[in-house]
Design a protein around this nucleic acid. Structure first.
Length: 465
DNA sequence: TACGAGCTCGGTGTGCTAAG
DNA sequence: CTTAGCACACCGAGCTCGTA
């Protein structure tokens, strides 16, 4: 007989077992309906599966030997006395063994324990055990539960929160692909397993149902968006390019190959023109349909107009009942005209477009484009219109650092070609021009060497009148 | 603005998986 | 083994985008 003191729990369990023997009430409510044989069998099974090392096999006859029985019962008692948390831990542990299998089969994940559960303990007196196993599945099983698995209760099978994508698609009356794309973009959680043949089974959490519904219902494709706003599709694209439509996934960026726009952001835009009175168009009013057709022809103007409406700088004052969406908006003609002029001129404050810069420098447009393109004239990109703008100081910098060959030849009253040859003799070469970089104008760097050479040439060549 | 190439969507049938 | 339920393949319809 062992001399070590017995564990308290073991004593309590022994008491329970003893109470069982004497037909008295058990302290453990769950075990009450069990007869002694059933209780013993349960203890041995739990004892085996709650041992993380699981060295003992239930089929081995040695299980009934005195030494192993004691440790089994001790382990089992820990599970029963800390019910149900320890039982859940035990199930976690069983699953860990088969975790790398990444299978969604209950039989594979819970191994023989699952078999024993439904062969040895299927009677009503083990109801607490089944109940707790289902509780565990309900909270921890992140895969589908087959509707045909009649071992499990109807409630669990029909109410399990992890369901295949297909099931959710049917419930919400949307396509499986629509849900899959939400999984791809990381908007909803999923759990995926691969079957032995390599098929992928994806499950999603049913609690996300309303989220999925709202995400999918909020999605609108380009055509639908254009219809809602009463615009052409390219006008909707312009608004997108100026970031006025909230979160948008373009067809190109998207595996599904379709635009995904948010219905709610479109509605927010439509609200800007809601509750306006209807009015027939007359001389004082100008409709957006007309403006889009004849006036807002630069790609940045329409987005700017919408931005101005959002900022309440200009507001539609009525709607035309023949048109839908934004096209119906009507502005006061003079007010719009003022806004339009401001957009084209006022906002640039001293900056030139490239043709304007050409005029300022008295050169041809193509020369100006070449100078900007090759970096001799610095420019900035206007954010919304994508126009290259040149500031006055950029032009002055250019005039300070460079000089046109034509200008120099005029100073000496000789032909540009002659000037070119004379400067070449002094080892001065143009930085731009025909034969240099394809430019149409000969340009020299305005530096000390050039100044000295010009001074020398001025003395050699008498200035003709 | 119209048109065609090339793409995806969605419905349906087929075959595989996982249960009893 | 049989069967329920799921994923995949296929195909016509419709959509998007680039080009003229």
């Amino acid at each position: 007989m062992s001399t070590e003191p017995a564990d308290d729990k073991e004593i309590e369990l022994a008491q329970t077992l003893s109470n069982k023997l004497h037909g008295q009430d058990s302290q453990i409510l769950n075990l009450q309906p069990l007869n002694l044989k059933q209780l013993h069998s349960l203890l041995v099974t739990l004892g085996v599966y709650a041992n993380p090392e699981r060295r003992i096999d239930l089929r081995n006859q040695s299980i009934n030997s005195q030494s192993s029985a004691r440790s089994l019962i001790l382990t089992a008692s820990k599970v029963l006395f800390n019910w149900p948390d320890s039982f859940h831990q035990m199930l976690d542990q069983i699953q860990k063994v088969s975790e790398k299998k990444n299978t969604a089969r209950l039989g594979k994940r819970f191994g023989k324990f699952y078999e024993y559960l439904y062969t040895n303990y299927k009677g009503p007196e083990f109801g607490f055990l089944m109940h707790e196993f289902e509780n565990y599945l309900e909270n921890n099983w992140k895969h589908a539960i087959a509707a045909r698995n009649k071992r499990l209760s109807r409630r669990l099978r029909s109410g399990h929160i992890w369901v295949p994508v297909h099931t959710m698609a049917v419930e919400l009356n949307v396509s499986r692909k629509a849900i899959s794309s939400l999984i791809e973009t990381g908007e909803i959680d999923s759990s995926r397993v691969r079957t032995t043949m390599g098929r992928e089974v994806i499950c999603i959490n049913r609690l996300q149902r309303e989220l999925i519904r709202s995400l999918i219902l909020d999605r609108v494709d380009l055509k639908m968006a254009a219809e809602m706003l009463g615009l052409q599709e390219n006008r909707v694209c312009q608004l997108y390019e100026h970031h006025l439509l909230g979160k948008v996934i373009r067809a190109k960026e998207n595996a599904s190959g379709r635009w995904q726009l948010s219905r709610s952001s479109l509605e927010q835009i439509l609200i800007l023109g809601a509750n306006l009175p209807e009015a027939a168009s007359d001389g004082d009013l100008i409709g957006l349909r007309h403006l889009l057709h004849y006036v807002l022809n630069k790609p940045f103007l329409f987005p700017r107009l919408l931005m101005s409406v959002m900022k309440k700088e200009i507001l539609p004052i009525s709607v035309c009942k023949q048109e839908r969406g934004l096209s119906a908006w009507q502005f006061e003609r003079s007010h719009f005209k003022h806004w339009h002029i401001e957009q084209l001129k006022g906002s640039r404050k001293g900056a030139f477009t490239i043709p304007e810069a050409a005029k300022y420098l008295k050169i041809k447009q193509e020369v100006a484009y070449h100078l900007v393109g090759s970096g001799y004239i610095k420019c900035v990109m206007e954010e919304d219109s994508q126009l290259r703008l040149v500031t006055l100081s950029n032009l002055e910098d250019f005039k300070r650092n460079y000089v046109f060959g034509v200008e120099l030849s005029k100073q000496l009253s000789i032909s540009p070609k002659h000037l070119c040859e004379l400067l070449e003799h002094n080892n001065i070469w143009p930085i731009s021009g025909h034969g240099v970089d394809g430019g149409r104008q000969i340009i020299y760097r305005r530096d000390l060497v050039l100044q000295r050479a010009m001074k020398d040439l001025g003395e050699i060549i008498p200035v003709r009148n």
